[in-house]
Amino acid sequence: MNNREKMYKILSDVLGIDINAIDGSTGLENVESWDSFNVILLVSEFEQAFNIKFTMPEVECFKSVKDITDVLKKRNVEFLD
């Protein structure tokens, strides 16, 4: 599994959404289960999966998949695309 697949798998698991329907725009605006507890859960699972610790300011702007990808990239998690 590459990092994007890993990330989408977690998103799909935690939010209970179809993995094929996930793209950068997936987020608070269009996913009902994107609530504050699930964001915390996503943070915990990503930290576990990528062996990093996010900062609070980073987490505060997790409003879409793109936001999360941007932070992960800054943290040197490599995405092929």
Binding site: S36, I40, V43, M56
Partner: peptide, 8 residues
């Protein structure tokens, strides 16, 4: 985890 504490 302090961040989790402050957030939730």
């Amino acid at each position: 985890d302090h961040k989790m504490y402050y957030m939730g």
